[in-house]
Amino acid sequence: MEEKSLSMETIEYYFQIQRYEHTIKLIKEAMNEQIENGRLWYMLGFSHYQLNDYDVAEEQLIESMRLGMNRAVVFPILGHLYLETERFQKAEEAFLETLRLNPTDVRTHASYAFLMAKAGQRKKAKALIYKALELDPEDAHVLRYYLRLEGLTSKGKQQMTALEQYMNSSDSELAKLIQLGVLASLQDRVAEAKEHFRQAFLLNPEDKKLLAILEEMDIQNHPLSAPNRLIMKFGGPLVFWVIGLGVMFLLQAVGFPTLAAIWLLVYMLFVIYTWISLPIVRLIRKIRR
């Protein structure tokens, strides 16, 4: 009996420290004797979900419920699984079922809000995330989604408050660095975003998504991409177009048509270059590799 619980403890520990591949290995060993253990099936399904093996994870999570695992624990994971696989209707069903079983589950409120935002139901998303905040204003998961849904698109004080609240939450350092990177990236603060993602990557160098983001940022920071960065410094393509064409019209209006034509030519060449610069950098990097 003691051996059995110790073995469960080891599995739980590996599960807790997010060693999902090893957890799966241990569970499969333990399954020989405990095939009817719902908790094991749940951990197995969750681990496969974390490793993006969604089909297998779905089956195992459903099996865990059949074997008596708490449905209010399993349904939110299923909801996230359906969200990841873009089965939005099933995701909604799973989240609503969780909320029916546990109406005060704040994290599911936040996850459901995220689903609504992804599906373009902005009003409902907003209502849900505020409801979650009302239920628990300090929950790390809720504050993370609040920052994503409201903080990133709001301005000034509201954004600062959302950010401050989230940074003071108990979320992991890794998650915080990623959120800061996303925030900086959405606000076109490329260098800052890269620094956050770099630090996040150092905490989890096996994360292929983070590596892809960093590599993309390297391309944007390449010397050949300097014109693209210049456009961003001017306030983005829109402002740059307005400035360029405004100068051309101005030159025409004040009686310098030849100069206007030369300006237009140079300007167009510059803009065309910014369209092809990033593919050129990618090609160079590929050849060098």
């Binding site: 873009e86 909604e92 599906a119 373009g120 139901q121 209502a127 409801k131 983005g236 393509p237």
Partner: peptide
């Protein structure tokens, strides 16, 4: 409304967009 389904009537997909600039 918060706890009643919103995506059950039709096949809902995620939002899409061009770079609006």
């Amino acid at each position: 409304d918060l706890y009643s389904p919103s995506l059950q009537d039709h096949a809902v997909t995620k939002t899409k967009s061009y770079n609006i600039s």
